[in-house]
Design a protein around this nucleic acid. Structure first.
Length: 216
DNA sequence: TGCCAGGCCGGGT
DNA sequence: ACCCGGCATGGC
Protein backbone atom coordinates (compact mmCIF):
# COMPACT_ATOMS: atom_id res chain seq x y z
CA UNK A 1 0.00 0.00 0.00
CA UNK A 2 1.35 3.42 -0.83
CA UNK A 3 2.12 6.10 1.69
CA UNK A 4 -0.87 8.26 0.91
CA UNK A 5 -3.29 5.37 1.39
CA UNK A 6 -1.54 4.31 4.60
CA UNK A 7 -1.73 7.77 6.12
CA UNK A 8 -5.38 8.12 5.17
CA UNK A 9 -6.14 4.78 6.80
CA UNK A 10 -4.38 5.86 9.98
CA UNK A 11 -6.33 9.07 9.95
CA UNK A 12 -9.66 7.29 9.56
CA UNK A 13 -8.79 4.72 12.21
CA UNK A 14 -7.91 7.42 14.74
CA UNK A 15 -10.89 9.60 13.89
CA UNK A 16 -13.24 6.64 14.08
CA UNK A 17 -11.90 5.57 17.46
CA UNK A 18 -11.53 8.96 19.14
CA UNK A 19 -13.81 11.34 17.29
CA UNK A 20 -12.96 14.92 16.30
CA UNK A 21 -10.44 16.74 18.49
CA UNK A 22 -11.53 20.37 18.34
CA UNK A 23 -7.98 21.63 18.53
CA UNK A 24 -6.08 23.81 19.44
CA UNK A 25 -7.40 24.20 23.04
CA UNK A 26 -7.51 28.02 23.16
CA UNK A 27 -10.02 30.82 22.89
CA UNK A 28 -8.08 33.06 20.53
CA UNK A 29 -5.33 32.76 17.92
CA UNK A 30 -3.09 34.84 20.15
CA UNK A 31 -3.56 32.37 22.97
CA UNK A 32 -2.53 29.61 20.56
CA UNK A 33 0.69 31.46 19.85
CA UNK A 34 1.54 31.92 23.52
CA UNK A 35 0.64 28.29 24.25
CA UNK A 36 2.81 27.07 21.39
CA UNK A 37 5.90 28.57 23.03
CA UNK A 38 4.94 27.55 26.55
CA UNK A 39 4.38 23.91 25.62
CA UNK A 40 7.89 23.36 24.27
CA UNK A 41 9.04 20.09 25.86
CA UNK A 42 6.37 20.55 28.52
CA UNK A 43 3.08 18.84 29.32
CA UNK A 44 -0.09 20.82 28.82
CA UNK A 45 -1.25 20.96 32.45
CA UNK A 46 1.46 23.43 33.44
CA UNK A 47 0.90 25.45 30.30
CA UNK A 48 -2.80 25.71 31.13
CA UNK A 49 -1.94 27.12 34.56
CA UNK A 50 0.44 29.64 33.08
CA UNK A 51 -2.18 30.76 30.56
CA UNK A 52 -4.76 31.02 33.34
CA UNK A 53 -2.39 33.20 35.35
CA UNK A 54 -2.10 35.59 32.41
CA UNK A 55 -5.80 35.48 31.60
CA UNK A 56 -6.79 36.21 35.21
CA UNK A 57 -4.88 39.47 35.06
CA UNK A 58 -6.06 40.43 31.61
CA UNK A 59 -2.61 39.88 30.16
CA UNK A 60 -3.52 37.36 27.47
CA UNK A 61 -3.66 39.85 24.65
CA UNK A 62 -0.86 41.17 22.42
CA UNK A 63 -0.69 44.76 23.67
CA UNK A 64 -0.96 43.84 27.35
CA UNK A 65 1.63 41.10 27.09
CA UNK A 66 3.95 43.28 25.03
CA UNK A 67 4.05 45.92 27.75
CA UNK A 68 4.72 43.42 30.54
CA UNK A 69 8.38 43.43 31.66
CA UNK A 70 10.25 40.19 31.09
CA UNK A 71 10.77 39.33 34.74
CA UNK A 72 7.09 39.85 35.52
CA UNK A 73 6.13 37.71 32.57
CA UNK A 74 8.49 35.01 33.79
CA UNK A 75 6.84 34.96 37.23
CA UNK A 76 3.42 34.37 35.73
CA UNK A 77 4.44 31.54 33.44
CA UNK A 78 6.46 29.71 36.12
CA UNK A 79 4.17 26.62 36.12
CA UNK A 80 5.05 25.93 32.48
CA UNK A 81 8.71 25.30 33.31
CA UNK A 82 11.82 26.87 31.72
CA UNK A 83 10.06 30.07 32.71
CA UNK A 84 12.94 32.53 32.34
CA UNK A 85 13.85 31.07 28.96
CA UNK A 86 10.25 31.08 27.74
CA UNK A 87 9.70 34.65 28.92
CA UNK A 88 12.58 35.71 26.70
CA UNK A 89 11.29 33.63 23.78
CA UNK A 90 7.82 35.12 24.09
CA UNK A 91 9.30 38.61 24.13
CA UNK A 92 11.27 37.81 20.98
CA UNK A 93 8.13 36.54 19.29
CA UNK A 94 6.04 39.52 20.40
CA UNK A 95 8.64 41.88 19.00
CA UNK A 96 8.49 40.06 15.70
CA UNK A 97 4.66 40.07 15.57
CA UNK A 98 4.55 43.77 16.33
CA UNK A 99 6.95 44.74 13.59
CA UNK A 100 5.63 42.20 11.08
CA UNK A 101 1.91 42.98 11.32
CA UNK A 102 1.21 45.26 14.28
CA UNK A 103 -0.46 42.28 15.95
CA UNK A 104 -2.97 42.02 13.10
CA UNK A 105 -2.94 38.24 12.95
CA UNK A 106 -5.60 38.09 10.25
CA UNK A 107 -3.38 40.17 8.01
CA UNK A 108 -0.44 37.94 8.86
CA UNK A 109 -2.48 34.87 7.97
CA UNK A 110 -2.99 36.19 4.43
CA UNK A 111 0.73 36.03 3.69
CA UNK A 112 2.63 33.23 1.99
CA UNK A 113 3.19 30.19 4.19
CA UNK A 114 6.81 29.43 3.37
CA UNK A 115 7.92 33.05 3.69
CA UNK A 116 6.13 33.30 7.01
CA UNK A 117 7.68 30.05 8.19
CA UNK A 118 11.17 31.37 7.45
CA UNK A 119 10.49 34.54 9.37
CA UNK A 120 9.19 32.63 12.38
CA UNK A 121 12.22 30.34 12.32
CA UNK A 122 14.46 33.41 12.36
CA UNK A 123 13.04 34.39 15.76
CA UNK A 124 15.30 33.06 18.50
CA UNK A 125 13.36 30.47 20.46
CA UNK A 126 11.02 29.52 17.61
CA UNK A 127 11.98 26.18 16.08
CA UNK A 128 10.19 24.16 13.39
CA UNK A 129 7.51 22.62 15.59
CA UNK A 130 6.57 25.89 17.25
CA UNK A 131 6.54 27.65 13.87
CA UNK A 132 4.31 25.00 12.32
CA UNK A 133 1.97 25.02 15.33
CA UNK A 134 1.56 28.77 14.95
CA UNK A 135 1.05 28.54 11.19
CA UNK A 136 -1.49 25.74 11.46
CA UNK A 137 -3.40 26.40 14.65
CA UNK A 138 -3.18 30.17 15.00
CA UNK A 139 -3.09 31.26 11.35
CA UNK A 140 -4.99 28.42 9.67
CA UNK A 141 -2.27 27.68 7.15
CA UNK A 142 -1.59 24.11 5.93
CA UNK A 143 1.78 23.45 7.58
CA UNK A 144 1.96 19.96 9.09
CA UNK A 145 3.16 19.72 12.68
CA UNK A 146 5.56 16.85 13.34
CA UNK A 147 6.09 16.54 17.07
CA UNK A 148 7.56 13.92 19.40
CA UNK A 149 4.37 11.84 19.32
CA UNK A 150 4.32 11.90 15.54
CA UNK A 151 7.90 10.65 15.46
CA UNK A 152 7.26 7.93 18.00
CA UNK A 153 4.10 6.65 16.34
CA UNK A 154 5.51 6.63 12.81
CA UNK A 155 8.72 5.02 13.97
CA UNK A 156 6.94 2.40 16.03
CA UNK A 157 4.87 1.44 13.02
CA UNK A 158 8.01 1.12 10.91
CA UNK A 159 7.09 4.00 8.61
CA UNK A 160 10.08 6.21 9.31
CA UNK A 161 13.55 5.73 10.82
CA UNK A 162 14.12 6.55 14.48
CA UNK A 163 16.55 9.33 13.66
CA UNK A 164 14.47 11.09 11.01
CA UNK A 165 14.89 14.85 11.17
CA UNK A 166 11.99 17.19 11.78
CA UNK A 167 11.65 18.33 8.18
CA UNK A 168 11.74 14.75 6.91
CA UNK A 169 8.81 13.83 9.14
CA UNK A 170 6.92 16.91 8.06
CA UNK A 171 7.51 16.11 4.40
CA UNK A 172 6.52 12.50 4.97
CA UNK A 173 3.00 13.89 5.33
CA UNK A 174 3.08 16.96 3.13
CA UNK A 175 4.55 15.16 0.11
CA UNK A 176 1.43 13.01 -0.26
CA UNK A 177 -1.40 14.90 1.47
CA UNK A 178 -3.39 17.79 0.07
CA UNK A 179 -2.46 21.08 1.75
CA UNK A 180 -5.68 21.38 3.73
CA UNK A 181 -5.40 23.22 7.04
CA UNK A 182 -8.51 21.66 8.60
CA UNK A 183 -7.25 18.20 7.67
CA UNK A 184 -3.71 18.80 8.97
CA UNK A 185 -5.18 20.28 12.12
CA UNK A 186 -7.26 17.20 12.89
CA UNK A 187 -4.56 14.74 11.81
CA UNK A 188 -1.92 16.12 14.13
CA UNK A 189 -4.40 16.51 16.98
CA UNK A 190 -5.33 12.85 16.65
CA UNK A 191 -1.66 11.80 16.64
CA UNK A 192 -1.09 13.68 19.87
CA UNK A 193 -4.17 12.18 21.48
CA UNK A 194 -3.18 8.67 20.42
CA UNK A 195 0.37 9.26 21.57
CA UNK A 196 -0.80 10.60 24.87
CA UNK A 197 -3.03 7.65 25.63
CA UNK A 198 -1.37 4.70 23.95
CA UNK A 199 2.17 5.39 22.80
CA UNK A 200 4.29 6.13 25.88
CA UNK A 201 8.06 5.81 25.70
CA UNK A 202 8.02 2.77 27.97
CA UNK A 203 5.51 0.51 26.22
CA UNK A 204 7.19 -1.15 23.23
CA UNK A 205 3.90 -1.41 21.36
CA UNK A 206 0.75 0.65 21.34
CA UNK A 207 -1.38 -2.06 22.94
CA UNK A 208 -5.03 -1.23 22.46
CA UNK A 209 -4.33 1.87 20.45
CA UNK A 210 -6.56 2.53 17.44
CA UNK A 211 -3.61 1.88 15.17
CA UNK A 212 -2.90 -1.51 16.72
CA UNK A 213 -4.50 -3.33 13.82
CA UNK A 214 -1.84 -1.94 11.52
CA UNK A 215 0.96 -3.55 13.50
CA UNK A 216 2.37 -6.81 12.18
C1' DT B 1 11.71 8.04 44.08
C1' DG B 2 12.85 8.79 39.14
C1' DC B 3 11.16 9.61 34.66
C1' DC B 4 8.67 12.22 31.52
C1' DA B 5 6.43 16.27 29.13
C1' DG B 6 3.05 18.72 22.26
C1' DG B 7 11.72 21.87 21.93
C1' DC B 8 15.27 24.90 21.09
C1' DC B 9 19.75 27.14 21.43
C1' DG B 10 24.70 27.68 21.65
C1' DG B 11 29.07 25.71 21.78
C1' DG B 12 32.16 22.05 20.78
C1' DT B 13 33.94 18.38 17.83
C1' DA C 1 26.82 17.53 10.03
C1' DC C 2 26.35 15.46 14.66
C1' DC C 3 26.38 15.60 19.74
C1' DC C 4 25.66 17.59 24.13
C1' DG C 5 24.43 20.38 28.27
C1' DG C 6 21.31 23.61 29.81
C1' DC C 7 16.79 25.16 30.65
C1' DA C 8 12.49 24.01 35.30
C1' DT C 9 7.99 22.88 36.96
C1' DG C 10 4.46 19.43 37.96
C1' DG C 11 2.20 14.76 37.51
C1' DC C 12 2.37 10.02 38.00
Amino acid sequence: MDRQATLLEYYQAMLGALGPSGWWPAKTPFEVIVGAVLTQNTSWAGVRKALDNLEAEGLLGPEALRSLPEDQLAERIRPAGYFRLKAKRLRNLLAYLEQACGFDLEALARRDTSALREELLAVSGIGPETADSILLYALGQPSFVADAYTRRILCRHGLTPEDAHYDELREFFMDVLEPDAAFYNEFHALLVRVGHHYCKPKSPLCGTCPLGSFLE
